Simulated assay, not measured.
Amino acid sequence: MESTSYVTTTINEHIACVEFYHPASNSFPSTQLADLTNAITVLNTNKEVHLIVLKSAGEKAFCAGASFDELLSITNLEQGKQFFSGFANVINAMRTSNKIIIGRIQGKTVGGGVGLAAACDYTFATKNALIKLSELAIGIGPFVIEPAVSRKIGKPALAEMTLDAENWKSAEWAFNNKLFTHLFDDAPQMDEALEKFAEKLSNYNPEALHEMKKVLWEGTENWDTLLKERAAISGKLVLSDFTVKALNAFKGM
C-alpha cells in the first residue's frame, strides 16, 4: 500500500473509476477533498463516460471521514468553514454530476465517508462495511452530510445513528435502511456483481441516464447554499474547547 494520498481516474470503455486513498484509513484532508471534487466534475464534459464508479483503495476502510490532523489545525471561523465546505463541494459535485455514480463500499465508513456513500446513486457493499456517525462524540455534528444521509435513510434512522455516536451500525443495518443497495459476503463477490451491473448500465442511453439522474435528485436544488451554511456551523463548533480536547483524546488512543 502506498504511503502518499491520491485521487486517480481511470476510464475503461464508458466507465470511469474514481479511486481515492489516504494512509490514515482513507480520511480526507482539504486538498484531497478538492481533488475528488475536481475528478468528479471534469467527467461532466467527457461524453464517452456514461457512469462513474467511486471507490477507495485498501480492504479495511472505505473512508474515515475528515482528517483529525487538519481539524486540529483550524484556528478561526473562516478556516473551519472552508474545511467543511470541502465535503459540501464533493457532495454537490456528486449531486450535480451528469453521470450515475455507483459506490463501492468495501470496509468501515465514518462521518464524511457515510456522506459519500449516501451521495452515490447506487451502492455495492460488503458485510465488513460497518458505518458510524461519530461527530457528536467529538463535539460537532454531521451537519454538512446530513441532507444526503437523510435523503437515503430518513430522519429516524439518522437520529438513531447520530445520537448513538460511539457505536457502529452493521452493514446489514445500512442495507435495511437503504444506504446500501446490495450487500455481499466479501469483496470478490461484490466486485463481480458490480462489474456486471456497471457494464450493463454503461450501455444504456446516456441521455436517458442523465435525465434519470436529474429525477433522482429533484428537490435538492438548494443544497449549494444549504451545505455551505452547514459547513459554517461545523466550522464554528470545531473551535470549541470540547472538540479540541476530544480530538486530542481520539488521536492519543
Score class of each variant (00 low, 15 high):
residue 3 S to H: 13
residue 6 Y to N: 10
residue 6 Y to F: 15
residue 6 Y to V: 01
residue 8 T to W: 08
residue 9 T to S: 09
residue 9 T to V: 13
residue 13 E to P: 02
residue 17 C to Q: 15
residue 21 Y to Q: 01
residue 21 Y to A: 08
residue 22 H to Y: 08
residue 23 P to S: 06
residue 27 S to M: 02
residue 27 S to W: 02
residue 27 S to L: 00
residue 32 Q to C: 05
residue 33 L to C: 12
residue 36 L to H: 08
residue 36 L to W: 08
residue 41 T to A: 13
residue 43 L to P: 05
residue 47 K to A: 12
residue 48 E to A: 12
residue 49 V to Q: 02
residue 53 V to L: 12
residue 54 L to K: 03
residue 55 K to A: 13
residue 56 S to G: 10
residue 56 S to N: 04
residue 57 A to D: 04
residue 57 A to F: 06
residue 60 K to Y: 13
residue 60 K to V: 13
residue 65 G to N: 07
residue 68 F to Y: 13
residue 69 D to C: 05
residue 70 E to A: 05
residue 72 L to S: 12
residue 72 L to W: 00
residue 76 N to K: 10
residue 76 N to I: 06
residue 81 K to F: 01
residue 82 Q to D: 14
residue 83 F to G: 00
residue 85 S to L: 04
residue 86 G to Q: 07
residue 87 F to K: 02
residue 87 F to A: 11
residue 91 I to F: 08
residue 95 R to L: 10
residue 104 R to H: 12
residue 105 I to N: 06
residue 105 I to E: 06
residue 108 K to I: 12
residue 112 G to E: 02
residue 113 G to D: 04
residue 114 V to G: 06
residue 115 G to K: 05
residue 116 L to A: 07
residue 116 L to G: 04
residue 117 A to I: 08
residue 118 A to P: 03
residue 119 A to V: 07
residue 121 D to H: 03
residue 122 Y to S: 05
residue 122 Y to G: 08
residue 125 A to E: 02
residue 126 T to L: 02
residue 127 K to C: 01
residue 132 K to H: 05
residue 137 A to W: 08
residue 138 I to L: 09
residue 139 G to C: 07
residue 140 I to R: 05
residue 141 G to W: 07
residue 142 P to R: 04
residue 143 F to D: 10
residue 152 K to I: 05
residue 155 K to W: 09
residue 155 K to C: 01
residue 155 K to Q: 12
residue 156 P to K: 03
residue 157 A to G: 02
residue 160 E to P: 06
residue 163 L to D: 15
residue 164 D to L: 10
residue 166 E to L: 12
residue 169 K to Y: 11
residue 171 A to P: 05
residue 174 A to P: 03
residue 175 F to C: 12
residue 176 N to V: 01
residue 176 N to M: 10
residue 176 N to T: 07
residue 177 N to D: 07
residue 177 N to L: 07
residue 179 L to P: 04
residue 184 F to Q: 02
residue 186 D to W: 00
residue 188 P to M: 04
residue 189 Q to D: 09
residue 190 M to V: 01
residue 191 D to K: 10
residue 194 L to C: 05
residue 194 L to G: 05
residue 195 E to N: 14
residue 196 K to S: 13
residue 200 K to W: 13
residue 207 E to T: 14
residue 211 E to I: 08
residue 215 V to K: 13
residue 215 V to N: 04
residue 218 E to Y: 08
residue 221 E to W: 00
residue 222 N to W: 04
residue 227 L to C: 10
residue 231 A to S: 09
residue 231 A to P: 01
residue 231 A to T: 03
residue 233 I to E: 07
residue 234 S to P: 00
residue 234 S to Q: 14
residue 236 K to P: 04
residue 237 L to Q: 13
residue 239 L to F: 07
residue 241 D to A: 14
residue 243 T to C: 11
residue 243 T to G: 02
residue 243 T to R: 05
residue 251 K to M: 08
residue 252 G to Q: 15
residue 253 M to L: 14
